[in-house]
Amino acid sequence: MTEQQQILFACIDNCCYFKLCGELRYTNATGMDDLVERLFRQQSGCKQVVVDLNAASFMDSTYVGLLASLARYCQQQQLPRPTLFSTHAEVNELLFSLCLDQAFDIVQQATGQDYAMTAISGQNYSEQQQGQMILRAHEALIALNDSNKSQFQPVVDILKQQLS
């Protein structure tokens, strides 16, 4: 039995809170992608971003790329660096190996916050839309640093080829 993935979101006092739970894979990333894209498009009132990964047990590179996109959004809006909470050793190892510590303030402890949050549903993406999401996520990873570029540029090149 696979662990259920869940995305929870709240905007409280101009702070956007994301709580990501379970196995975070590209196959269930459409809700997160849609939420991040909506934040990019509209002036959401977010003055600070907090991501809680304490309930995440696994994360693939697409999801890490979505987090990188979120950090880039904060930078473009001249917001403070987002804060990311994570106590899961394997998730933390992935975050640090893909240099998310350059884009987030990573706190390796529980948040201690318990807000009323809204569950975000997955979106019905076409195969083309899902491919575009995966491409954008990996381009955001590449933008973080050169070691990510050498690791993910072949993936980006293949995706671009397949999507054209």
Results as ranks from 00 to 15, higher is better:
residue 92 N to E: 13
residue 19 K to L: 15
residue 126 S to H: 09
residue 120 I to K: 10
residue 12 I to E: 13
residue 22 G to C: 09
residue 136 R to M: 04
residue 134 I to Q: 07
residue 15 C to H: 04
residue 75 Q to H: 09
residue 12 I to D: 07
residue 153 Q to T: 12
residue 109 Q to K: 12
residue 155 V to N: 03
residue 145 N to K: 12
residue 97 S to F: 11
residue 17 Y to F: 15
residue 3 E to Y: 10
residue 136 R to N: 06
residue 100 L to F: 02
residue 164 S to G: 13
residue 164 S to P: 01
residue 44 S to M: 04
residue 74 C to E: 03
residue 42 Q to N: 08
residue 146 D to F: 04
residue 10 A to F: 02
residue 88 H to E: 15
residue 7 I to F: 08
residue 162 Q to D: 11
residue 42 Q to W: 04
residue 31 G to T: 11
residue 148 N to C: 03
residue 155 V to M: 09
residue 114 D to Q: 15
residue 157 D to A: 13
residue 135 L to R: 13
residue 144 L to Q: 09
residue 49 V to I: 15
residue 43 Q to G: 04
residue 133 M to Q: 04
residue 49 V to P: 02
residue 106 I to C: 10
residue 80 P to G: 12
residue 29 A to S: 10
residue 33 D to N: 15
residue 47 K to F: 01
residue 1 M to G: 12
residue 121 S to A: 15
residue 38 R to Y: 01
residue 61 S to P: 00
residue 32 M to L: 15
residue 30 T to N: 01
residue 76 Q to G: 04
residue 34 D to L: 12
residue 12 I to G: 02
residue 133 M to L: 09
residue 77 Q to F: 00
residue 162 Q to R: 10
residue 80 P to V: 15
residue 53 L to T: 02
residue 63 Y to D: 03
residue 140 A to E: 06
residue 146 D to H: 05
residue 9 F to V: 11
residue 89 A to N: 06
residue 92 N to W: 01
residue 146 D to S: 14
residue 66 L to H: 01
residue 92 N to F: 05
residue 159 L to R: 10
residue 144 L to W: 01
residue 132 Q to C: 05
residue 40 F to L: 08
residue 20 L to G: 12
residue 10 A to V: 09
residue 30 T to K: 04
residue 60 D to R: 09
residue 6 Q to P: 05
residue 133 M to W: 10
residue 131 G to P: 00
residue 74 C to M: 08
residue 112 G to K: 13
residue 54 N to I: 09
residue 11 C to W: 02
residue 13 D to S: 08
residue 9 F to E: 07
residue 21 C to S: 14
residue 63 Y to A: 13
residue 13 D to G: 06
residue 70 L to Y: 01
residue 93 E to S: 13
residue 13 D to H: 11
residue 107 V to F: 06
residue 59 M to V: 14
residue 112 G to W: 05
residue 8 L to S: 12
residue 91 V to E: 07
residue 135 L to D: 05
